[in-house]
Structures are given as C-alpha cells and as structure tokens.
C-alpha cells in the first residue's frame, strides 16, 4: 500500500479542521483541546497537535491529509509534517487581515527552503467583507504564478476544487 501526503496549513482559525472534514472519508482524527492562550479569544477549542484525514485513491494507494496546528508554539510540528509531502494548501481567513502577517510567516517557513508545490485558499469567501483572492494575492505579496483560490472550507465542492488545483500544480512538476 502506497501512501502520499498533503499538508493543510494556516493561521489559527483559518479553517484547517473544517477543510479536512469536508473531504475526508474517515472521521477526522483531531486533537482539539480547549484553548488556553490568546487563541481562546478567537475560538473555544482549537487544534493543538494536528488533524488527520484520509482518502482512498485505490486498493494500493491512499492520500493522507494533515492539518498543522496554528499556534506558534507548535512550529516544531510543521517540520515533521512537511517531510515528504506532495504539496501544501495554505488556508487564509479572508475576513481577518490581522492574520495575514502570520500567514506570510507560515508560507515563508514551508516554501523558502524547499520548492514545495502550494496553493493559497482564500477561505470564508461566503462571509461579508471577505477580501477577494486578488486582494489577498497583493496583501500576501504572492507572485502571479501562485494560485490564490476562492474557498469555503465547509463546502465539499469548494475543497475539492482547491485540492484539484494543487494537484494540477504537482502534475506540472511530475515526471513521466
């Protein structure tokens, strides 16, 4: 059985757990705990270790989805989770510009040392005052070739679209 891995990252409350739940075939293994730091101002429970989802591709192939914890004190987990990943989805809460700086830090961590295929998912596009993907591209200073995609993490079709767009990026870099 071959397993391949994708990582879903983003700042606290970007929607990582919801994203994986929307597409995973198994009940998502989350380690949500009552927030004990500043995070509690944003949400009562948050992912302090990681989320894990799974999609069976065929009898001999499985796709694992790992959601990283959002808090800075769990940065060490990112290195572990990123080892051997096929690609990366960076989720952004499009309604909270106060998280854009942290999002840039996460992109920098995952992308600056590695040529990691990634896309940015502009989550919560169904909310009023969500920044559009074009505006997020400028806010996050992303070059034109990086895909910044509209997303609603609770909507399975929207999540599928983000994963497919990431897979197309990976496909371009794959070998025959």
């Amino acid at each position: 059985m071959q397993t391949v891995k994708m990582v879903i990252s983003g700042a606290v409350n970007a929607g990582k757990t919801e994203f994986i739940k929307a597409i995973s075939e198994i009940e998502v293994v989350s380690t949500e705990r009552r927030a004990t730091d500043d995070t509690k101002l944003i949400k009562k429970e948050t992912t302090v270790a990681m989320d894990f989802g799974r999609i069976a591709i065929a009898d001999d192939l499985v796709l694992h989805l790992f959601g990283t914890p959002g808090q800075k004190r769990f940065d060490f987990m990112w290195e572990i989770l990123s080892e051997g990943m096929l690609g990366l989805v960076i989720l952004v809460d499009s309604t909270r510009p106060e998280t854009f700086r942290e999002t840039n830090r996460i992109i920098d961590f995952f992308v600056s040392y590695r040529d990691t295929p990634y896309v940015i998912a502009a989550n919560k596009q169904d909310r009023p005052n969500a920044w559009s993907p074009d505006e997020l591209r400028l806010a996050l200073r992303q070059p034109p070739h990086v895909k910044v995609l509209p997303c609603v993490a609770s909507d399975r079709e929207s999540v599928k679209n983000v994963l497919l767009e990431l897979l197309y990026v990976i496909q371009e870099r794959s070998e025959d």
């Binding site: 597409i23 065929a58 990943m85 590695r114 897979l167 794959s174």
Partner: peptide, 22 residues
Amino acid sequence: VADPPRVKRSLVNRIINRIKGM
C-alpha cells in the same frame, strides 16, 4: 533532503481522477 519528492505523473493523475469522482 529538502527537495520535494519527484512523483510519477501517473500517480498524480490517479489522485486527480479520484477526487474529481468524489
């Protein structure tokens, strides 16, 4: 070791087809 793994296009295509069909 920092390089992402080189993957076969056939493998990526299988994942794409599976997700499209979900």
